[in-house]
Design a protein around this nucleic acid. Sequence first.
RNA 1: GCCGCGAUGGUGGAAUCGGUAGACACGAAGGACUUAAAAUCCUUUGACCAGAAAUGGUUGUGUGGGUUCAAGUCCCACUCGCGGUACCA
Length: 983
Amino acid sequence: MQVYKLTQYVRKVCNVYEKSLPLHAVKTHKTDIMEYDFREIEQRWQKQWRDSGLYKVDNKSDKPKYYVLDMFPYPSGAGLHVGHPLGYIATDIYSRYMRLCGYNVLHPMGFDAYGLPAEQYAIQTGQHPEVTTEKNIARYKEQLGKIGFCYDWDREVRTCDPDYYKWTQWAFRKMFNSFYCNTSQKAQPITDLIRHFSEKGSADLDVAQSEELSFSAAEWNNMSEHEQQQVLMNYRLAYLADTKVNWCPALGTVLANDEVSEGLSVRGGHPVEQRVMRQWSLRVSAYAQRLLEGLDRIDWSESIKDTQRNWIGRSEGAEMQFKVAGKDLEFTIFTTRADTVFGVTFMVLAPESEYVSHVVTEDHRQEVDEYLAWVRRRTERERIADRKVTGVFTGSYAINPLTEKEIPIYISDYVLAGYGTGAIMAVPAHDSRDYAFARHFNLPIIPLIEGADVSEQSFDAKEGVMMNSGFLNGMQVKDAIAAMKQYITEHGIGKVKVNYRLRDAIFSRQRYWGEPFPVYYKDGMPYMIPEECLPLRLPEVDRFLPTETGEPPLGNAQLWAWDEKKQCVVESRKAKTENGVYPLELCTMPGFAGSSAYYLRYMDPHNDSALVGRQANDYWQQVDLYLGGSEHATGHLIYSRFWNKFLFDLGLVCKDEPYAKLINQGMIQGRSNFVYRYIGEGATGNLYVSFNLIDQPQYKDKVQAIHVDVNIVKNDVLDVNAFRNWMPEYKNAQFVYSDGTTDEDNPYIGMPSEKQYICGWAIEKMSKSMFNVVNPDDMVERYGADTLRLYEMFLGPLEMSKPWDTNGIDGVHRFLRKLWNMYENITEEEPSADELRSLHKLIKKVTWDIEHFSFNTSIPAFMIAQSELQKCSKRAVLEPLAILIAPYAPHLAEEMYHRCGHDTSVCDAQWPECIEAYLVEDTQKYPVQFNGKVRFTIEVPKDMSREEVEKTVMADPQTDKYLQGATPKKVIVVPGRIVNIVI
RNA sequence: GCCGCGAUGGUGGAAUCGGUAGACACGAAGGACUUAAAAUCCUUUGACCAGAAAUGGUUGUGUGGGUUCAAGUCCCACUCGCGGUACCA
């Protein structure tokens, strides 16, 4: 008895062990059918493709071009999980399909290799970020390589490669030397502006600028070089300015708006505070209107276009001047509700507004200073979390230009310095924020729209008939806005103005691992390193932390000064001692610098005289299909469009939009599993209750859910031994199994028994901390790349988020094996009509699916065709079938195609054409409905007329049964579809 | 709050033009093969009701209305979930 149980135990342990082995390794040998040895097949073909350069792409071809791009991955230390390749598989399918359709397809891959995580890791471990980055990239490439993508690796780019960042620096230099002309609506060389200044000063100028300056030509010409440079900074597209920035103390750097979410850094979740610092910025706002208009001409999802429209935030309104009572001072506000001027009962300035110091009266100074200090102390996060009304009276009054009444001027942080003019006219009756403020400070609220009840809340809608508004009374809101705009323009009180929410991008990072700026400082004034000296290489530092004096990490570099004469980098200390040697910029560029134009570099990756050669750019034009996550909507996808438009203005690229079509893939979520630790009375912390029991009275609310590694759970059944071995704290775990028995009822502790421990589950983000990460390598190892590719697509629609559950993968693996078995003995027989119908049905379906990016629906179509053609071994069917599946399962397809007698790659075959004639069936099935309910179906000849179908149905004996003697009111026959009899 | 997306069996999902809802796959149950297990194959599988069975019926796509001969699909109102964004004047 004992002996028997022991052998049984040994066997079961072996089985558990075998489960983790590749399928083919445990398969018994079968002699009747050939084995699907996916490992051998995949490795052989991957080598063959590599050796033959099958995926090398040429910039010259008679074929039409097609450019497919995946979003630039950041090579993280964690490697890829199964969610990452989803989009890459989709684009790979599309690329292979387009190649089969006769296109010259560019499908490159590279790495966004600069970034915070590698540097944080360097700070912690002292390892150079270059070393870890190199290692991570190698790992990524290995993982990607196993999945069988058709990337042309000769075109790989890395943002941290000097040959690459040379062009990032080069573009920055160009931006520095450009300004944006509003009249021509494009970037122009700064030399044009200098000429204008020397001829006309600031007159007749309509350009993008930080602030409005006014000077004559004479004044300009009398300025020192230093002063002129200072003025020019107001117009450059890459400019240095004191800006209110998001400072993240934990990361020791400034972050862009899109890198901050709810007051925390997106990377790492550290608190962020506001600070004023001298930073490089890119004048993205100059392009706001073009970025907005461009959206109408590109094929992107409506949701991402909407996100960008909101981010750009165009609003049409008016700027108006308000005089300050008793002072020779007026200030400007921006409003979209010019119609509400008669209801303005107070004014509000942003705490940072430059007007503040001018309007504060002596007796209010202390109170105001205290308030300003308090506002400054608050972090961004506190401000968002705590929305209570705060503010302070300045002691001054403004004069309403229409009512001539005096109204108090307040300061409050609900008015933002960075938007409009940093000052507003408050209309409490029709703006909820002004309303809350007015209520708090007991300020008057004057309703301006008939029927609006403002006793409880403001009436914010832009509709209704005006009242209490002088000459506007009786007008509709829309008309009143127009009328008021005209009035203020004519009376010189203000002007019509369009405002954008989009702000300039802060471009400096106080970090090491990024592109160095090609900039040195002469008397604090920045100068560009000559173009021919690029790239300016990232120097070595001995530590990656800020210097003792608080300078960025590059301050630690020994070799980091510019010798203007020798035109080279020299020892940092010489900047203090030698003439003609100047300090170099210590900040580096942000993450989006290197990813803004990478798609252009892929077109011509080895060109050392241009970012992209004219010919290469003319050939590839722009990205035809871009696929990636929607999280880049307000970051990369705006910057990249901006960067491209700038290069377009300079005549360096031929298209003003980089990505013609954009698809956002959904996220692959994790499916987490849980065990339930008993924490009730007498708990030892060692007892785990099966999921199906946790609602029973003795366990209810007495268990604690704990994440368990999904890799030791199958179909929600826990491998209890693997669990005990998983972590030391679970070594002595005891279980209450699904049938209520415990380990004590099962004397052989440690023996896998029939008793099952059922785990709970939840759909969560795929992450290490949830123990739900599934690795693509493991999937390739166990099932093969082709199975993984198919299963990733099979999971659901590309654009939708969906959970990963490894359990379903067996189904597609079985399908591939069955498909493979059809190719054993291929014959030259003529296919039957049925076989041709199955094949051409499939051709039609798969072609439609790929063209509509509906990859998930193709897999069932293949499965159905496989089962219909199970017995077919005819080359005339099997060969096109191999081509059809080639985009999805390239290794297997290659093998099958060669078995059909070819010695060239299936990649260069021709996509089969659907011949409609084969699809035609001679009969047609009609579901017959009575009052919309299907009762039976009839089968009639295909070409039967509507009348005859009706006659046939009415003559059918089953019809009498459902009519029950009644006469039909109406019989609807939809040819080829349905019959509905209305009684 | 605002904007966008979504909701279909135990699970992932299908239904592409308003025309047989639940294809395909997983899971589950039962069976065959096997000393045994794995693998493989076969059958059943939305729910409910009737029947020994064949089968027949009712109900059913987040909720409530509507349009239509016919609605998962179109219209109106709402609920919940996910993502983005937030004093943007």
